[in-house]
Amino acid sequence: MNPFWAGLPIAVMAAVPLWTGISASVVVIEALAILLCAIGVQRHSLGPVTMGAVFATMGYAVALWFAADGIDVIGATAFGLALLFLMDLSEFGRRFHGATVAVSVIRGQTAYWIARAALILGAVALLTLAGSVLASLVPAQGSAVIAGLGVVIAFAGAVYAGSRTRA
């Protein structure tokens, strides 16, 4: 797979924080993130790419810190998807570097990634909708209870997933 494909998620990953709130610190952090990701993709190493993603997330957090109130769900989803795809692409390039990869494998993998992206977009839309409905229905005092319930459900789901994988 052409490593230049990794340039697309890197561009999205760097553009979303700058779009959210441009400042010198954000620019520096995102530049560092881009550099690390480019090195990781070029050298077929997951470590620098992960570090780059960590820096990019940090830059996004800094941008959000200085940004105005209001939730940018689309930007956040694009950023999350870009992170995931960047990790996937760089890992795919790393593990099959030097091997002859069948065209059908690349075709199938691309289809899988597109399908998973669609699923994630649908899930985010559903969660956003459910959040909006809950916010309008549940009074302000009950939001903490709902959040706690969400944490308990997430923890149970993680434990179930872990036990299923171990089995």
């Binding site: 959000l64 810190w65 939730i71 769900v73 989803t77 999350g80 992170l83 994630i120 899930a123």
Partner: peptide, 16 residues
């Protein structure tokens, strides 16, 4: 940071 966007960012990673 106390921003909901970062939790939205976590959704694709969690689903992945």
């Amino acid at each position: 940071v106390d921003r909901a966007e970062l939790f939205v960012v976590a959704v694709p990673l969690a689903l992945g």
